[in-house]
Amino acid sequence: MTTQPKKARVSTTVNGQPVDVLVAPYQSLLEMLREVLGLTGTKEGCNDGNCGACTVSLDGRIVDSCLVLGAEADGKRVDTIEGMARPEGLHPLQQAFLEEAALQCGICTPGFLVAARALLEREPHPSEERIRLWLAGNLCRCTGYDKIVGAVRKAAALDGAGNGRAAG
């Protein structure tokens, strides 16, 4: 259509797989993931970087994908919720979220999981205070956070006891 600016070719790696996509210059990484690649596990809650539902990992750093342009993912590695589980099983955080009833409606859950994974990669045994600070960029309106914090602690403890796989 005539209003459409020319799309840019973006070569990126999503959940370990190299992908080439065409992205309009105004499209966010969130739009690229959801609309172009069909990876709808990453959610949109506010589209202005304040809810964390669209949290993904970009070259190992967590970002609000609504605040990053799709074109900026060129040459970078993007990791989303869809890449968190392995064929052999869930990530310990995913398992802990299930066991601890850490989700109600579930819309914020992918963002929390991606953010929590980044925390445990850096700090395998965070304190409760540290978990609450790290996750303060992700809003949950259902749970009051208690069970989310509990699930992250459980996943961290499992990891320490050698019962779970290394986080990440």
């Binding site: 069909g38 709808t40 596990g41 869809e82 869930l90 299930l98 066991e99």
Partner: peptide, 23 residues
């Protein structure tokens, strides 16, 4: 008792389909 919710797996893996996800 406290069983794992039936729809939990889809929700922790990003597969659950919410309203904005339909295409």
């Amino acid at each position: 008792t406290r069983p794992i919710r039936h729809d939990g797996l889809e929700k922790v893996t990003g597969r659950a389909v919410y309203g904005a996800d339909v295409k």
